[in-house]
């Protein structure tokens, strides 16, 4: 089995595990599991698939994905959509919405991210990371102060858990991304714009 096939197999296995087995309802039984585990896992599955795509397909898609901009936009819109509480609720009460959520997070969330991340200009990569962090802090804060439940399917207590979870994950991510920036030792580039490949800019970082 080639490396790509292995990756695809692992991703498929993970996808089956989190959508078809009892793990699925376990993950969505709490708001924190839903938002902090299930959604990121679905994106991760998509990243796995994206990285195991056949080279000629990647080449074809790249023609439509200059500098990774179109691709990252698809990912951003997809994730933004599934941050709307209304649709999180709907995915619990409506099976077709649930399937749309699963497939879109894999196909439109993860795969374009995998195909675009390395191609993004480093400044754009940084901007996406910063915006991602501020989204975590903003949503976390909103969840903590909201007088009402955002989701009818979850308890207020659960929502506060999620708020803290987002803020703590945001802080942890900040540190994780900062340490290599300060202490990493990237090979200095010889010339021009050939920016070195940075360990902190692995595609799974976002």
């Amino acid at each position: 089995m080639s490396k790509n096939q292995r990756l695809a197999a692992v991703s498929s296995g993970l996808l089956i595990l989190i959508t078809l087995t009892p793990v699925a309802s376990q993950l969505t039984s709490t708001m924190r599991g839903h938002v902090l585990l299930q959604i990121p896992l679905l994106v991760a599955v998509g990243i796995g698939f994206g990285r195991s795509l056949a080279p000629h397909l990647v080449r074809f898609l790249n023609r439509w994905n200059a500098m990774g901009i179109p691709g990252i936009l698809i990912t951003i819109f997809t994730i933004a959509f599934w941050m709307i509480p209304r649709w999180i609720d709907a995915s619990l009460t409506n099976t077709s919405v649930e399937w749309i959520k699963h497939s879109s997070l894999v196909l439109l969330g993860g795969i374009p991210l995998a195909l675009s991340w390395e191609r993004l200009y480093p400044v754009a990569r940084g901007a996406v990371k910063i915006e991602f962090l501020s989204m975590l802090f903003r949503l976390g804060w909103l969840y903590l102060i909201s007088p009402d439940r955002f989701c009818n399917s979850y308890l207020l207590e659960d929502q506060i858990w999620l708020g803290w979870g987002m803020i703590i994950i945001g802080m942890a991510l900040t540190l994780t991304w900062l340490v290599p920036v300060f202490f990493g030792e990237y090979a200095p580039a010889e010339t021009g714009h050939s920016s070195p490949k940075n360990p902190n800019e692995a595609p799974n970082a976002a």
Binding site: V123, G126, F182, E185, Y186, P188, A189
Partner: peptide, 16 residues
């Protein structure tokens, strides 16, 4: 971010 990119490309890290 562009400052950071350019500086890291040449000096390896912000610590440096």
């Amino acid at each position: 971010l562009d400052f950071a990119r350019a500086i890291i490309a040449k000096y390896g890290s912000l610590g440096n």
